[in-house]
Design a protein around this nucleic acid. Structure first.
Lengths: 339, 339
DNA sequence: CCTGGTTGCGCAAGCGTTTGCGTTCAGATT
DNA sequence: AATCTGAACGCAAACGCTTGCGCAACCAGG
């Protein structure tokens, strides 16, 4: 059937132990013998069975990555970058796509990942209970988004500062009524929307602008949600002259709503997003860029480092740089232009 | 340490065999005993070791998915949909991201996937050699893109027909000089660009328009590539009045180039894409929609079906429906409007 | 009461590696 | 020449589960 380690052992005239040691570069094998074994293995097309080897060694050479939604640009990009680091280091990636609440719940209660991985990279923020479940796996953990969790290596960005620079830009242009399209706020453990909102409020306070709750609309981090939220804002008696969308996807939805309402951007309304989605440049969206792929790479690297040195605890949170990107969806408010 | 099958066996006062049978719903266990075992397992938080069970049984309960680039919308979406089907059926997904040629080559020569998966879903088109490597794994295979391959379950779309409807739309509007931004053509085994090109040529021939090779530019399936390609086309003595981009990403790049050149869409130049990217609606791109997630789901389902019934060979290629989507980037050519 | 067929469960032999320990043997040390 | 020392390799015991087979105990039919 398939070729096993004893086949190559017989082909070389040595024991299976020696083959194992030779192929994995362990000491205790002479160079000559190692070469012969490697050659024989290649000739026979031998690949060690991962099941057997991980059963015997206790290591799985596999890393679990759990994500809320692979199809979304942000997660796809992080996953892409992280996978490259993992596979380059000889690890396989086991993907868990936890879109719906039911799937997510089932995952954390049944923990099918148990005994299957050497480490876990979570692209979703586990709530305290879920975090405890993951910790019970007793493997290094990391996450690239949102709040810190005990036991987790976390790499992220300064969400608050990013939001501040976005909103400050609008305020500096002269806008006084600046709306916000926020991300879903229900999962309380997910701090990104909160941090970005805080940045928004900070700048308003700083500029002496009274925050108006009516100017905040929820866009749920989707294009459609952003469109709905913008539509809500436009229906106000005093609609905003500028909006800060907490994600580029929502900003694009907002642009769409504005076009539908025959409003020009940025002449009538300014829009600024957050993330620097790959297509933001295409639509000329002013935004706050965060290094998405780099975060995935970094998180993966830190996880691998902890795997190499098991004594090392989770390092301090790593903060990646962000950058305000001025494009074409922001301008002074209409009132200011008329003067 | 971690709880093993013998622990729950002892806790229940039965043998490990019975525990195994009970937990996996196999016959030979009384209902009462099964209930007790299930309860004990839950209490102890027992999860069977996948390594051990797959070593013993030969089944891995894992499906390998190989993709060229997770971050790209199309693949991310297909992967997302497929993963949901697999995990619902109790399979784990092992992800292989084969972006660069080196990684890809290493993957197919070393085949780290060997002995690790029960089936493979390939979102990239393997060349004949790679296909042979995959077949040597001796597991069911499927692919969602491009040409048929012996041994593969394939689900796809009518690329040629889709391209025809896109180009026909342009011709019907009165365009005579219609350019094409094509996908990378180097990998010859990747038939999508060829098929879409053929559709383009078909319609031109049908309309009695002499195809002009200068009107074809390569955009490599990326936004930047599309922008470059459009720029090339605009540099021609007689630039096209309309372009058919073989993907929405490239179409968006084209839109960007046109904006840079201060050309209006669709007044000066019409653009039509292919795929119906999630953001195409946002930019109002006229395109040909294909059911991306549905293709992933369908391929996953067919693969699972073959897993249940190993005798069944690969089914006939499945063709999913496509749909022309008229939006706002197409209009009659300028010359025609002036009259 | 004896047979023949079920049903429910335990035994033990794998599945293909890894790895601690033991053995052999060549060369260096007294 | 006797002893010591590594280096190179083999032995065999895990690792935790699956599964064919065997063996009681039970039930129904003759």
């Amino acid at each position: 059937m398939t070729v096993s380690i004893t086949d190559v052992a017989e082909a070389t005239g040595v024991s299976a132990s020696t083959v194992s040691r030779a192929l994995r570069g362990r000491p205790g094998v002479s160079e000559g013998m190692r070469a012969r074994i490697v050659a024989a293995a290649a000739e026979l097309g031998y690949t060690a069975s991962r099941s057997a080897s991980s059963l015997a060694s206790g290591r799985t050479c596999t890393i679990g990555v759990v994500v809320p939604y692979v199809g979304r640009w942000f997660f796809g990009t992080v996953l892409d970058a992280a996978e490259k680091v993992f596979s380059a280091a000889g690890y396989d990636v086991l993907l868990y796509n936890l879109g719906s609440p039911e799937v997510r719940k089932r995952f954390f209660t049944k923990l099918p990942i148990r005994k299957r991985v050497d480490a876990v990279l979570s692209l979703l923020i586990p709530d305290p209970e879920e975090a405890a479940a993951l910790r019970s796996l007793d493997v290094p953990l990391a996450t690239t988004v949102g709040g810190a969790r005990p036991g987790f290596t976390v790499v992220g960005i300064d969400d608050r500062g990013g939001a501040e620079s976005a909103v400050r830009h609008l305020v500096n242009l002269g806008h006084r009524r600046v709306g916000m399209i926020s991300g879903a706020s229900e999962p309380l453990h997910w701090t990104t929307p909160l941090d970005r909102r805080q940045g928004y409020l900070d700048v308003l306070a700083d500029a002496g602008i009274e925050p108006d709750p009516a100017l905040e609309a929820d866009g749920g981090y989707t294009v459609e949600g952003g469109e709905r939220a913008m539509t809500e804002l436009l229906a106000l008696r005093h609609p905003p002259t500028a909006v800060f969308a907490q994600s580029d996807e929502m900003a694009m939805g907002a642009l769409r709503a504005l076009r539908r309402h025959r409003l020009r951007v940025p002449e009538d309304v300014s829009v600024v997003g957050f993330d620097d989605h790959e297509l933001s440049e295409v639509v000329g969206l002013t935004t706050v860029a965060q290094p998405v792929a780099a975060q995935g790479r970094e998180a993966a690297r830190l996880l691998l480092a902890r795997l190499d040195d098991p004594d090392a605890g989770p390092p301090h949170p790593v903060e990646m740089p962000i950058r305000f990107v001025l494009r074409e969806t922001t301008a002074p408010p209409p009132s200011r232009r008329q003067r």
